[in-house]
């Protein structure tokens, strides 16, 4: 059937014209292996060699496993390398062999197979419609409205429990996002797995940066809960020349002699913002490049963040250690819809 004979519902924007005749499938090009028995024999041998290499590869892989029982990292390296090379060879040997076989020795005459339109023919369609109608009549699906509608209702309701049952995937959010474990008088301690030591104001020299967590973090027993709290409470402690600070008078008491503490959690999507440039006082987030001016209450000066990093008000206790004046006065980390509501 040519295109002209076939009846298509004409497309709006199509303009069928087939001016030059289709010459039909190109004649078959004879291969070397078709012409010469010797070439065919050669190809057969090449294929066998490839399969042979595959066997050798498998043996190398087994040797790699046996020869390098793990004692140190060099053994891990060696058995990864040799098992990988061996298995790679083994696989590539089979692959190249099979494809070479297909290309050189199997027939390469292109053949044509007729297609049929996806649409069923009219007879089948008529039959299908008839079946549906019979089924409808026999079941009374259309006729018996009460059954049909109550079935729809049932089908609409039955999946709801399947959704509700997931209700306990996580607890109610509550105000967890708005508070951290910082409290008045909690010491700032060095971030460390062993539970870090407290920091004296005198230890924080100009240009220094300390990565800080609250001292009460180590009192949390549950590992998951500890991570949750650390994820909100991590703080960066820096001392700058007091004259460099552009402090809001209302927050002037939040710093101590040029020492300022800011939440390390980016207000964009929460990466730890920790790249501190001591000369420019810029803080850069390595994930999405939000940049904050630490000397100016961590105002956003570049990148996709919106809110400044929250500042932790600090003071010095009787022993000279840095302590918090209280929790952050605003939520740390990424913005969410009710972040401004208390």
């Amino acid at each position: 059937m040519s295109e002209v004979e076939k009846v298509y519902p004409a497309g709006l924007a199509t303009n069928i014209q087939k001016p030059i005749a289709d010459p039909g499938i190109e004649p078959h090009r004879v291969r070397l292996t078709d012409k010469s028995e010797k070439a065919a024999k050669g190809a057969e041998q090449q294929i066998a060699v490839m399969f042979g290499i595959s066997i050798i590869g498998a043996i190398i892989a087994i040797w790699g496993f046996v020869a390098f029982p793990i004692a140190d990292l060099a053994d891990t390296r060696n058995n990864t390398l040799w098992m990988g090379i061996g298995m790679g060879l083994s696989l590539l040997g089979i692959g190249f062999g099979a494809v070479h076989w297909a290309k050189t020795l199997m027939p390469d005459h292109e053949v044509s197979e007729a297609r049929h339109q996806a649409r069923s023919n009219d007879e089948s369609r008529a039959k299908a419609i008839e079946i549906i109608k019979t089924a409808d009549a026999e079941s009374g699906f259309t006729r018996r409205k009460l059954i049909r509608r109550s079935l729809y209702g049932a089908l609409a309701f039955f999946p709801i429990p399947a959704l509700v049952i997931f209700g306990d995937l996580g607890p109610q959010v509550g105000d967890t996002l708005k508070h951290t474990i910082w409290k008045k008088g909690v010491r700032l301690v060095r971030d460390s797995a062993e539970g870090g030591t407290a920091i004296k104001a005198s230890e924080v020299t100009i240009g220094s940066v300390f990565h800080v967590v609250p001292e009460n973090l180590k009192d949390i027993e549950d590992h998951g809960e500890k991570l949750n709290q650390k994820a909100k409470a991590a703080v960066l402690l820096v001392r700058v020349e007091p004259s460099d600070l552009k402090e809001d008078p209302a927050k002037a008491s939040w710093s101590y002699d040029g020492i300022v503490a800011y939440s390390k959690i980016c207000t964009h999507v929460g990466c730890p913002v920790a790249l501190y440039e001591q000369q420019t006082h810029h803080l850069l987030c390595p994930c999405h490049q939000s940049t904050f001016d630490l000397a100016d209450h961590c105002r956003v000066i570049f990148g996709p963040a919106s809110r400044p990093l929250p500042q932790l008000a600090i003071e010095v206790d009787a022993e000279g250690y840095l302590v918090a004046q209280g929790d952050f006065t605003e939520p740390v980390g990424p913005s969410f819809w009710d972040i401004r509501q208390s």
Partner: peptide, 21 residues
């Protein structure tokens, strides 16, 4: 969390509470 209204709840549902849990 940025998704209006349901964001924090989705996060809580995924992580089983606060991040990282």
């Amino acid at each position: 969390k940025a998704i209006p209204f349901i964001g924090p709840s989705i996060s809580s549902g995924l992580f089983g509470g606060e991040f990282p849990g």
